[in-house]
């Protein structure tokens, strides 16, 4: 029953989200060495200022009350106050979220399309030199730290050729209309996107290849061949549909990976997104911003997991009735 399945999944989603928020609270507000405690003990502040801080962060309340206040604030979209920017975290996050979504969206598109195509190609050449080469190259790309790949790309495009911008999201001081702006942003988007995609393509190409190879020796593939279907129809209609199921599962893992990658790539390319924000708040110990970014990242992964579960469910008729 689909409705019941959905209800069950939704309940699990709610529970996980709740656990995440609680985990976040524990991490930043309760554990010894938590930022607020550090701040309150910090020598930078005199007694009066410290007392004010304690009050501002509600440390004078019991943990339970703090927890309730924290929870209530979150529900109202209040992530606290940035030490560094002297603004509400929500304001600080504002444009960064959009920029990160843009980068991740572009990178995911490239990653999935190229990864799956490469995997299908490798599987169609299974156990040939091409197949081995694709596997080795994929593992090689996987072994590159995102930031190092970014540095190499910057090296190539900053030192040798100057085809594309290597830093930021717009050319400073460039005043153009809407289309000009769009073109400018697109040009800035290319290198960070490719860097992020390059490292993550491997994951998709390897999984696609392996599950396709697995699917190709299934009995129903012999039936398909006996029916006289063309190689392409066999591969796409019969094998790929089965092989994509593990790929869908891998997406959840991928999101966790690419968020880690985004922090590095945004740092290297000075892309003003949440990754760069995390880097800056780590450097300046701006904990409220760090906390908000981590919470949003975690929620993003959890939601993607939920969606990939639903997608899997709709793709595989065998699990649809459970």
């Amino acid at each position: 029953m689909t409705a019941r399945y959905f209800a069950r999944k939704f309940l699990a989603l709610t529970a996980t989200l709740y656990a995440t928020v609680t985990f976040n609270f524990l991490l930043f507000h309760v554990l010894p060495g938590s930022p607020v405690e550090l701040l309150a003990r910090s020598g930078h502040y005199d007694a009066a200022a410290r007392a004010q801080l304690v009050k501002l962060f509600g440390l004078n309340h019991s943990l339970i009350v703090q927890y309730v206040i924290y929870f209530n604030d979150l529900l109202h979209g209040n992530f606290g106050f940035s030490y560094v920017y002297r603004e509400s975290v929500t304001t600080v996050l504002g444009s960064a979220i959009g920029n990160t979504v843009l980068l991740l969206g572009a990178a995911t598109f490239v990653t999935v399309v190229v990864g799956v195509v490469l995997g299908v190609y490798a599987a169609s050449k299974v156990r040939t030199a091409t197949d081995t080469a694709i596997t080795v190259l994929s593992l090689g790309a996987w072994s590159m730290p995102d930031f190092f790949t970014g540095m190499l790309v910057i090296f190539a495009f900053g030192v040798w050729v100057h085809w594309l911008p290597i830093s930021g999201i717009v050319t400073p001081g460039l005043v153009t209309g809407f289309w000009g702006h769009l073109w400018d942003v697109s040009r800035h988007l290319v290198l960070p996107t490719l860097t992020l995609a390059l490292v993550n393509i491997a994951q998709f190409s390897l999984i696609t290849r392996n599950s396709l190879v697995e699917a190709m020796v299934e009995d129903y593939m012999l039936t398909a061949r006996a029916k006289g279907l063309s190689r392409w129809v066999m591969l796409v209609r019969h094998a790929l549909r089965n092989a994509l199921l593990p790929v869908v599962t891998a997406t959840a893992l991928y999101v966790g990976m690419i968020l880690g990658g985004a922090i590095q790539v945004e740092t290297v390319f000075s892309w003003p997104g949440m990754g760069l924000l995390i880097y800056n708040s780590v450097e300046q110990r701006d904990y409220p911003v760090l906390e908000a970014c981590f919470l949003l990242f975690a929620v993003a992964v959890i939601l993607t997991n939920f969606l990939s579960d639903l997608l899997y469910h709709s793709l595989d008729p065998r699990v649809r009735r459970t």
Partner: peptide, 23 residues
């Protein structure tokens, strides 16, 4: 491929997974 199924068709072992599970 042109002759298969048209000239000679196959019925595979029943225990086998001969039908595609997702179609």
């Amino acid at each position: 491929n042109r002759l298969r199924w048209k000239s000679v068709a196959f019925v595979f072992q029943g225990a086998m997974n001969a039908l595609n599970p997702v179609l």
